[in-house]
């Protein structure tokens, strides 16, 4: 969801307050980046520069962490985040075929967002419900025991 300038301003103020509280603790970078990710849904160059300047480190350090961990995103996510589990159990139960189908229907690669901003696909590791493998979630809803044939119908509900 694209944020309005007003929302960005408000969230930036929130982030600044959070940074002020946390900048002097040991290892402040991760919690601050997590807060920023939660607030904005992604880490823009502006956000990363703000964090870097506040902590007196180069932006390259922030960017390095942002691209190392899958929990951080560099682009705004779509209205609906489709997470396909490719953990071990789901994988042996055919998660790759499920993921391939999602990719085929939405026309984007994992980690990308559709041009209309409706969907983001992400690969995820074990969601803790291996009995339902293969599993995917769309936002907070869990879909289990999937086959590629199920995908079209499920995605249509979110169009």
């Amino acid at each position: 969801m694209a944020l309005t300038p007003k929302e960005i301003e408000a969230k930036t103020e929130q982030l600044k307050a959070f940074i002020a509280e946390h900048k002097d603790v040991d290892g402040p970078l991760m919690p601050i980046m997590q807060e920023a990710q939660n607030l904005f849904g992604y880490l823009s160059l502006d956000t990363q520069e703000l964090i870097a300047d506040s902590l007196g480190i180069p932006v390259t350090d922030v960017y390095g962490v942002a691209t190392f961990y899958a929990q951080f995103s560099l682009k705004p996510k779509g209205d609906n985040v489709v997470s396909v589990c490719t953990g071990t159990a789901c994988y042996v139960k055919g998660a790759q075929a499920v993921l391939d189908k999602v990719v085929e229907i939405l026309g984007i690669a994992p980690g990308e967002t559709t041009d209309d901003g409706k969907f983001t696909i992400q690969e995820t590791r074990c969601l803790g419900c291996c009995g339902l493998a293969p599993v995917m979630t769309i936002n907070e809803t869990v879909y289990g025991r999937l086959t590629p044939a199920d995908i079209k119908g499920i995605l249509e509900k979110y169009q």
Partner: peptide, 20 residues
């Protein structure tokens, strides 16, 4: 003390260079 380059991503995708 410039910091124009850093490491990004990981594993086989590890890249040394500027951001984004």
């Amino acid at each position: 003390k410039i910091g124009a380059i850093g490491v990004s991503k990981r594993g086989i995708n590890t890249t040394v260079g500027s951001i984004f």
